[in-house]
């Protein structure tokens, strides 16, 4: 009887959300898993672990590690930018004018930002032409490679441009919510330097409130596709590019491998999210 009452109290909109968004996603994951084990598919020859074995033998591991490293460094650079910008807006009276400009990158789609950076940084791009005109180098061959490069510089620039300002906006809001100007004033009056306030008060306080949000952006960067596709090298590739490549190969026998990689990616993200966010900030998962 209790259960019936509880069911009656279920929000129909929540049911609709689960039915329209959650269930199709889970169905998609189940479909990919079944495909990866050879249980479905037009060319399926029955249950097989072959695709999963190939996943660990090929360059999928390289793709996973590269994606992880790229996500980590993108987040580090975005955090450095966001902390610096939000701190500057706190301590420098004129720096508040920066705030409206932080919204500009939000208007850019990732692919547009990638094209813009490519147009600037490729060896025949605007920066190269400008520096050539100034006599800094002798032509295309002399210009350092800043896109499709070993250091993934182009990708990191775009990720920092896209994510850094968003985090800076959030950090500024959180700083105000934490009454950071008053805290800083108090700390300063007790003899603390700005460096001490920044590292001992500002950074941990903002991180405590925004860490979960930053990690969610990490998940977003982990799954980014267009930016590494345009600005990345042939090898290593990010996971999403690797999966798409397997999915569209000439050899249709690669399809189970593509589904295995996609399933592994989805499961890894789900487990990571649940583990990290429940540990990090239980409040985020509570209504």
């Amino acid at each position: 009887m209790m259960q019936i009452r509880r069911m009656r109290r279920l929000d129909p909109w929540l049911l609709l959300y689960v039915a329209v968004l959650v269930l199709p996603l889970l169905f998609g994951l189940g479909y990919s898993l079944a495909y990866s084990f050879g249980m479905i598919g037009l060319l399926s020859e029955g249950f097989s672990l072959g695709a999963w074995q190939r996943l660990f033998e090929g360059d999928a591991a390289d793709a996973f590690l590269y994606t992880l490293a790229l996500t980590f460094w993108s987040l580090v650079l975005a955090l450095v930018f966001a902390y610096a910008a939000s701190w500057a807006m706190l301590i420098r009276p004129g720096a508040g004018r920066l705030y409206p400009w932080l919204f500009v990158p939000l208007t850019l789609a990732p692919v547009v930002a990638a094209f813009a950076v490519f147009a600037w940084l490729n060896p025949a791009g605007l920066l190269s032409r400008l520096t050539f005109a100034l006599g800094v180098h002798d032509g295309v061959q002399d210009f350092p490679r800043l896109v499709q490069d070993a250091g993934s510089i182009g990708i990191l620039v775009v990720h920092t441009l896209l994510v850094g300002p968003v985090l800076a906006i959030v950090f500024r809001q959180q700083a105000n919510a934490e009454r950071m100007p008053a805290l800083r004033k108090t700390a300063r009056s007790l003899g603390a330097s700005d460096a001490v306030v920044f590292f001992r008060v500002f950074v941990p306080a903002i991180w405590r409130r925004s860490g979960a949000f930053v990690l969610l952006y990490g998940v977003y960067l982990f799954g980014t596709y267009e930016v590494p596709l345009l600005l990345g090298r042939s090898q290593p590739r990010v996971l999403t590019v690797y999966i798409t490549d397997q999915m569209t190969r000439f050899d249709l026998g690669n399809l189970p491998l593509a589904h295995a990689a996609a399933s592994a990616y989805a499961l890894a993200v789900m487990i990571l999210l649940l583990r990290l966010l429940t540990r990090w900030n239980r409040r985020l998962l509570q209504p």
Binding site: N122, P123, A124, G139, V140, Q141, R145, Q148, A150, L229, R233, S234, Q235
Partner: peptide, 22 residues
């Protein structure tokens, strides 16, 4: 190109690199 560490993804990119003079 690029020390052989990377290869153009498709012919459109090849055309672009050719048109650029790379």
């Amino acid at each position: 190109w690029n020390g052989g560490s990377s290869f153009p993804a498709n012919v459109a990119q090849m055309h672009q690199l050719f048109a650029n003079g790379e």
